[in-house]
Computed example of a mutant assay.
Amino acid sequence: MSPAPESPADEATPPSAGTGALDALEERLLGEDPSLTQAEVAEQAGLSLELARELWHLLGFAHAEPDDRAFTQQDVQALRFTQDLMDLGVIDGDRQDGLVRTLGRSFARLAEWQVNLLADTARESGIDPTDGLIGLADEVMPRVESLQSYIWRRHLLSVASRMLAVAGSGGSLSDRAVCFVDIVGYTSRSRTLSERELVAWLEAFETAALDIVIDHNGRIIKNIGDELLIVADTAQDAAAIATELTRRGADEDDEFPGVRAGVAYGEVVTRLGDVFGPTVNIASRLTNVARPCTVLIDSGMYAALTGADEDDDDHEPSDTDESPYRFRRVRRISVKGYSRLKAWALQPR
């Protein structure tokens, strides 16, 4: 009797095109086919399995089962480098979680943007995203990787130069001007735009804002939806940034959106590329109550710009010709955490 024919369910299911493309992409980006379990990676790196799992989790990667062969020699090398940094004292127990988590979060966002960009490029070129992504990865990724390294080194030089300059002058590293800039009418405007139009609008805003910030020696720390957090080393630079951004927004012939800004000057805690402390909170509160196309500053900014005593409640704003700004004292502001906050409206002459 001849054997019964196999049913379709008994036949091996061929891998999908997407699976094949993913395997090829995995080999290109990781340098080899994954063949190691997490325990084997930890053993070869000389770390405990518990620490290896913790680092993997902090980096934002998916959980791997004990028998999953999802790792390569690059994972071993990454753990060895991490151990080297621990031995050198660069990463200690207090900083380990924050540093690794920040690296993982930052690169996850960067990778998501880059892959979406590659997929859009493939579609606009009439290439199937599944197949085209591999070819684009071969052509684009080495260049992107080199560019990322160059930009990172340039920013390291910039930060180190500022640190050395301040240390050499005997100044304090903790005093900063913090500026929040918020788009006026963002919610209503976003409802009238498609997703693509909204992204293009926000990117145009951020690009124009970045040019202004860089021109005046500032740094954009992060964007929070329709809001930018900006830091400058001097009150003068922060004032120039805030007034120029609001001036652009007030110009009806300029496509730059209307914005409002709050600026505070004082002690700032810097950690993992972000800033914290009362100065940051005050700048945020001032932004929330500022009118469209206006800049509100706190007593620290006012003192730094005018030379007044920050604690002198009787001091009146000065309109001397030497100052590039006009100051208008506003009524004390009651906001969350600050019941009677002193503030001034800042305008260029």
Rank of each mutant, 00 (worst) to 15 (best):
M1A: 06
E6K: 11
D10G: 02
E11K: 10
E11C: 11
A24P: 04
A24S: 14
A24G: 13
A24L: 09
G31S: 07
Q38E: 12
A42K: 05
E50C: 06
A52M: 05
E54Y: 05
H57K: 12
L59K: 03
E65V: 05
A70H: 06
Q74V: 04
D84G: 04
L88F: 11
D92F: 10
Q96E: 13
L110S: 05
L110R: 05
W113A: 14
L117G: 10
L118A: 14
G135P: 02
G135L: 08
E139A: 14
S158W: 02
M163H: 14
L164E: 13
V166G: 00
D175A: 00
D182I: 04
E195I: 08
A204N: 15
A208V: 13
H216V: 00
N217I: 01
G218E: 03
I224W: 10
L228Y: 01
I230L: 00
I230Q: 01
V231K: 07
T246C: 09
R247H: 12
D251P: 08
D251T: 09
F256I: 13
F256D: 14
P257N: 07
P257Q: 04
V259R: 05
A261M: 10
D274M: 01
V275G: 02
P278Y: 03
R285G: 04
A290V: 05
P292K: 09
L296P: 06
M301W: 01
G307D: 01
D309H: 05
D312S: 09
D314H: 12
E316H: 08
S323F: 07
S323D: 15
S323Y: 07
R329L: 13
I333W: 01
S334D: 12
V335E: 01
L341V: 07
